[in-house]
Design a protein around this nucleic acid. Sequence first.
DNA 1: CGGCATCCTCTTTGATACTG
DNA 2: CAGTATCAAAGAGGATGCCG
Lengths: 227, 227
Amino acid sequence: MRSYDQYCSVAKSLDVVGDRWTLLVVRELLLQGGSRYTDLLSGLPGISTNLLGDRLRQLEANGLVRREHAPPPVATTLYHLTEVGQELDSVIRALVRFGTRYMADPTSDDEQFRGHWLALPVSELLHDTDPDGPPAVIEIQTGGRPVFVELAAGVVRTTFSAPRDPDLILTGSGQLVLGVLTGQLELTVARGLGLEDEGSAAPLKRLRYDGPRATGIDTAIAKGIPA
Amino acid sequence: MRSYDQYCSVAKSLDVVGDRWTLLVVRELLLQGGSRYTDLLSGLPGISTNLLGDRLRQLEANGLVRREHAPPPVATTLYHLTEVGQELDSVIRALVRFGTRYMADPTSDDEQFRGHWLALPVSELLHDTDPDGPPAVIEIQTGGRPVFVELAAGVVRTTFSAPRDPDLILTGSGQLVLGVLTGQLELTVARGLGLEDEGSAAPLKRLRYDGPRATGIDTAIAKGIPA
DNA sequence: CGGCATCCTCTTTGATACTG
DNA sequence: CAGTATCAAAGAGGATGCCG
């Protein structure tokens, strides 16, 4: 990217991460940790292979990404965020907070989705209102690998392997699951729109959402669903 | 910008503000409030007139900017951030926090600077360590209109008109001033590099900087200054 | 299959000129 | 002042080929 040539903190940041796809590469590395080239490709649907290579090279040149030639058991290159790169998590979190308002909009037909992306709004915008309650786990099935939402000690975290047997399993589109988790979509309404749930709904009642609210999320979602 | 077509909060944000120049337009509107087209042009050195027009139209279409046809005393169009647009301040602040690490680097010859940009790192990264002390004001002269840094009740704010007579006036490049304010550059060293100061240095000692630290800022700056 | 490099087409940007 | 019109150059996207 051409530099903005401005002596300004924001412009300097954007000189480094303002290129198309760059922050999404950082998103993947923050979510997934050390990743192989093809892991990144599959977590970044729509990027072309040459662009991913370009971006990784730029990020490395700027000291945000480190490549590591893993020894025989893996026998491939792993890309990691450096400490400086990790500091972009505050930028990503701010973008999550802002962008979640658009998650209620009707989705286009060819919109891609990866379950692990849900970890961003879940861990940034959801809180456990019952810090003294017993730990609870919700399993999310949106196609692909499941994601686990864990409520414990007032904090909501996400993991990619089951921390214990889930209290609740939600199966359906990312949009339905997110609507129910954020409390913007009643479980009964979500069922009508295609969500399947198995187990206790109690953990849902413990969640508090403090992100941007969308009105009429149910009708918005319904509009996106073929009748 | 072409959409990323990903059902992800970050991608959705970037669909709206990920275009080149877009976040810098937001920066100007956050810093300056309602602005005329030409105010924006002068606060965004390097942008071309057609791109500014494009970006304003997009921001308006996305509900982040509102145009207001001001009545006779002004007799021109003013651009404002909407409430949704204002919420981008957390994104801007995160970018400020990240990007300030690069402010110590040697600046290129044709790098542009506007004094009001300093308000970003100052109000985001500086704190007043003496909340019970008397209010203090530092006037910053970097060419163009002066900027005033006000320490009061534990908070550091910036204004564009003098809240009272300044206790200290700093005159010099943005980089020297910022180095001194953040405590990364000793005042005596800064004087040797061309900074002029008038008044009491006491307010500087009250400031605490909690942003990213650059090592060797003095030699870095010296390298950028023609001998 | 992982990790690129190349070629080609299409879109976006940037510089400048121009108009109400 | 507040933009629109024009056009060359850069960058993005897509397909494909290469090499361990």
